[in-house]
Design a protein around this nucleic acid. Structure first.
Lengths: 194, 194
DNA sequence: ACCATATGAGACACTGATGTCTCATATGGG
DNA sequence: CCCATATGAGACATCAGTGTCTCATATGGT
């Protein structure tokens, strides 16, 4: 297997372009995915057994990215609010892919869904819980709901940016400010801007 | 056409059960949709030319419901925050259907998408803008983003309830409080509870 | 130059869903 | 009772996407 380097098509690039395409049109065909990656359908099939395998690979990629973002955000350090801010900033590049997978609800109805999601949920939930216990966050919104809401805002944000309704540079700010501060005008409007 | 009353299958019921099913499994087949409504596939086809027509009908239904909810919420009366609260409460029964259509992004990529959505967007945007001009809402989050975020939170909320992660009775409270007040604990924690 | 491997192009069968049709039956008004 | 209509069941062709295969060609080490 010294010839492994002959593999001109790198899996990473294929997954990237597939993510970019499926984010826009979630019903794109395998042929379109292949062409978007600049390869033939046959080659695509050689790397990913089928559409299902491709989506699973994207799922794994997204989970890995989200976990990496979570690691980089150091969720256990400093004020929870700032940790959330770091997290959103770190997860932004993965938001579009997350939005695609979020709408692929068939991923979660099977008997054996990727346990990576529940691990992510737990870590996010823990972050919000920490914020509650430290007195930073209100306690009448459950950590589970805050986690779910974060997912929702990330997907909405990705969509809004893709549609041109929100400037890409405002992505993090809009999400963090809404998630933490809400729309009501009462206190600490800005600050901790990047 | 005196025999119109012979129509045993009422369109409304079919749309309702289709919405309920597609909300859970967005890839449900026409046969499943028919069976869920208690009719045969042939009859379903007699009422809706095809799957596309069915989704379009659901889209129209959802838009009508949302507009009715918006009307009932009296978005131009009283404080904008309370209007938002009334709106979310009124739109709650349609949230699941909204979530389904929201993920059906093919609806928005065609050249001629239902203009009802843009009308809804405009009315929601106007509500948030009114809140900003009255000094209730902060001005650094654009009305367009607040509108998009509301959609996102509604779909997340519907999903969370369906998954059992959030109690159905908390739906409105969780969404309104997060959208208006955010997660940060600083001021006016509860109040204006239903 | 040689050779192993990866790729592209295309053909092919298969599958699942869709849309259309027919016919028998049930329903309800006249 | 008669008849118009709606429905259910099923057959049927169609179609798009998928997965598999073959073969010719390109690529890049040796």
């Amino acid at each position: 297997m010294v010839y492994a380097r002959l593999m001109a098509v790198d899996r990473e690039h294929v997954l990237r372009s597939a993510a970019a395409l499926l984010t826009r049109r979630s019903t794109a065909t395998m042929d379109e995915v292949a062409r978007a990656a600049g390869i033939s359908r046959a080659t695509l099939h050689r790397h990913f057994a089928g559409r299902d395998a491709l989506v699973r690979a994207l799922e794994a990629l997204c989970i890995a990215e989200c976990e990496a973002a979570l690691d980089a955000a150091r969720p256990d350090e400093g004020p929870a609010a700032e940790a959330v801010h770091r997290l959103v900033r770190a997860i932004e590049p993965s938001a579009a892919l997350l939005a695609f997978l979020y709408s692929e609800n068939q991923l979660f109805e099977g008997e054996q869904q990727n346990q990576g999601w529940t691990r992510l949920d737990e870590r996010l939930t823990a972050l919000f819980r920490r914020g509650q216990e430290s007195g930073e966050f209100r306690i009448d919104l459950t950590p589970a709901w805050l986690t779910e809401a974060l997912y929702g805002l990330l997907t909405s944000g990705a969509w809004a940016v893709a549609e041109g309704r929100v400037a890409a540079k405002d992505f993090t700010y809009m999400i963090v400010e809404l998630l933490l501060g809400g729309a009501r005008r009462t206190r600490t409007p800005r600050r901790e801007e990047s």
